[in-house]
């Protein structure tokens, strides 16, 4: 077995204020290999977002090991992370292409090449011809596509997504799920995908980690052995049901 790209072992994090302590993450243990799409699923307050922020280098962890990269696949914090959030967070005064270029600007990458790459990415996410539009001219789903292109423009090794489709309507959301699978296959990135939706977690993940709240801990993690390319009708397959039932059980909802 090759060395995993991300190695988490007993990671925990407690937020402390003057009056109280709040356990945000505990028992986070898992290995993630390069090119995996890992879904983190669980209720509010289970520490999904905190774990994501630890991986992004935005928060420190209190205990445990967080080891990203290494060997022939070095990982540079502050450079190799792309992020997508529930809101597209596109800058209203920038055209789509200039929004996609934001990370490249922040990192001071050569703009000519980056612009070229941004165009390719907009093509990949299906936004051909919208380069010169402003965000308000795009639908919610299209704005999220632009946000995904933005997360890829500096060619990071790790993409962190925090409920990226949570604000979309159900049909657009399913369509975006398939789009994400396609983008993931084409870009070959390691993606960590936080979601509330058990169905989404199973459909997207090559591996799934289940987090529970009260107290926040990582309850289990397992591989999802569904065939590729994944399709929406897989949701009706028996195997899909086995995975969703397993997650419901872990969340104490059965």
């Amino acid at each position: 077995m090759t060395k995993p790209f991300i190695h988490l072992e007993g990671v925990s994090k407690t937020y402390r204020s003057r009056r109280q302590e709040f356990l945000a993450v505990s028992d986070a243990t898992m290995d993630i290999h390069e090119g995996e799409l890992v879904s983190l699923v669980g209720p509010s307050g289970c520490g999904k977002t905190t774990l994501l922020k630890i991986l992004a280098g935005l928060h420190d962890h209190d205990e445990g090991i967080v080891d990203i990269g290494g060997g022939d696949n070095p990982f540079e914090p502050g450079r190799d992370v792309g992020m997508v959030f529930q809101q597209s967070l596109l800058l209203k005064w920038r055209k789509i292409i200039d929004n996609v270029l934001l990370p490249a600007e922040i990192l001071g990458l050569p703009m000519g090449e980056s612009r070229e790459r941004a165009r390719d990415l907009l093509h990949m996410v299906g936004l051909d011809g919208f380069e010169q539009n402003y965000p308000y001219e795009l639908s919610g789903g299209m704005q999220q596509r632009a946000a995904i292109a933005r997360s890829l423009v500096h060619d990071p090794k790790l993409i962190l997504m925090d409920e990226p489709f949570g604000a979309l309507d159900a049909l657009t959301r399913e369509k975006m799920n398939l789009e994400l699978l396609r983008i993931w296959t084409e870009s070959k990135k390691t993606i960590i995908f936080v979601t509330h939706s058990i169905q989404e977690a199973v459909l997207l993940g090559s591996r799934c980690a289940v987090l529970t709240a009260g107290p926040a801990r990582m309850a289990d993690q397992f591989e999802i052995e569904l065939d590729y390319p994944r399709t929406l009708d897989m949701k009706t397959h028996e195997k899909f049901g086995v995975y969703t039932r397993r997650i419901y059980k872990l969340l104490g909802m059965e």
């Binding site: 935005l58 992370v81 959030f85 934001l102 600007e105 922040i106």
Partner: peptide, 29 residues
């Protein structure tokens, strides 16, 4: 400024000045 937008910039080690010139100032116009 949306806190998550700040997270995005900070995850790329963006400077205070970059946040100001690229996000805050144009956003406040």
């Amino acid at each position: 400024v949306e806190p998550e937008l700040l997270d995005l910039v900070k995850s790329l080690k963006g400077s205070r000045w970059q946040i100001f010139t690229k996000i805050q100032l144009p956003g406040s116009l």
